[in-house]
């Protein structure tokens, strides 16, 4: 199958002092596929997502690489065409549903504006918007349309944001920690909702999160980011059942398993992640790795593909399967 989205050698730096924030990020996504990008704060996962839509914050820029979406390099597009793609073909859901909606506009008007701005041809915009709200499980859509965002609860707001992002039937949905600010039972509802909508619409999805647990049952493949680089990519099963990068393994081991009844010491990774710009030509995980060898400090391991799986490690943990 053809790649819908592919990031090739994407590197992001600060504009002023040229600090490297992400380096050589390669990601590809075929149509209908869901990919999870997992990483801790500062790993560059959110910047990578923002760069796809050209939404990097001021002072941060893509310095090399390509972002190909449906045969077009998004980095070299005219602003006009990029705006067309945003929302219509790629849409985004953010972490904080509070700030993702305009507080002085009714939810209904904000949804209608999306249709209007993109000249979306629908016979009856109002009923289209109403249906979209029903689809995301907002009860009483009539009232919801006339409500302002502050009249919604956090979960309802995130549902409205999701409704807005699905309005134009995008090919790709980018979700940046959309459930982190929500309560667990609400998170559960949203995950279920997104999962249903994705399979119904055959939509591709890029799900950014720090929480491995969230993506375990949500995406097809997982990419693990550490200090600005992807250290391991594989199918969800491969990543969770036989992680090969010591960081992935450590991350998994440090999570208490909800269903387990063991309360033994949690495995932990000593130290803290390094700043991506201070890593240089060595493995970024070397200082925290229990399997570290001299070679790891002397050269940089690159993502080494073996079939559906690749890992950036000179001494990957033997696959148990």
């Amino acid at each position: 199958m053809r790649d819908l989205l592919s990031l090739q050698g994407l590197s992001i730096q600060t504009s002023s002092d040229k600090r490297s924030l992400t380096a050589d990020v390669n990601i590809s996504l075929v149509e209908g596929e869901a990919l999870g990008i997992v990483g801790e704060s500062g790993s560059g996962k959110t910047l990578t997502a923002l760069s796809i839509l050209g939404l990097l914050p001021r002072g941060v820029e893509v310095v090399s690489g390509e972002i190909n979406f449906n045969g077009e390099n998004l980095l070299s597009l005219e602003p006009e065409r990029l705006r067309e793609i945003r929302g219509k073909e790629i849409s985004m859901v953010y972490q904080d549903p509070m700030t993702a909606l305009n507080p002085v506009m009714t939810v209904g008007n904000q949804l209608l504006e999306v249709l209007d701005y993109h000249n979306h041809e629908v016979k009856n915009p109002e009923s289209h918007v109403r249906e979209s709200l029903i689809e995301v499980g907002i009860p009483d859509p009539e009232r919801a349309l006339k409500s302002y965002p502050h009249e919604f609860s956090g979960g309802m707001r995130q549902r409205a944001v999701i409704a807005m992002s699905l309005l134009l039937s995008p090919k790709l949905l980018i979700a940046d920690e959309p459930t982190t600010a929500l309560d667990v039972t609400i998170q559960r509802q949203i995950l279920s909702l997104v999962s249903k909508q994705r399979s119904r619409r055959q939509m591709s999805m890029l799900w950014i999160t720090h929480d491995l647990g969230v993506v375990a049952n949500l995406v097809d493949r997982v990419a693990v980011m550490y200090a600005g680089r992807i250290v391991e990519v594989g199918t969800t099963k491969q990543i969770f059942n036989s992680p090969q990068h010591p960081y992935t393994q450590g991350l998994l081991a440090s999570l208490p398993v909800a269903s387990s009844r063991s309360r033994s010491r949690l495995a932990s990774i000593p130290g803290v992640p390094p700043k991506p710009w201070l890593v240089g030509q060595s493995c970024s995980f070397a200082d925290r790795c229990q399997f570290v060898q001299i070679r790891c400090r002397e050269s940089l391991p690159l993502l080494d593909a073996q079939g559906s799986k690749s890992v950036a490690c000179f001494y990957p943990i033997a696959s148990s399967t």
Partner: peptide, 26 residues
Amino acid sequence: KALIAAIPDHSQVGQMDLTVSLEGEV
């Protein structure tokens, strides 16, 4: 019961159980 069911469980990878144990919000 709902709270326990809502914890994302990474020990079981695979298709998500789409049934939601608890509707509505606090």
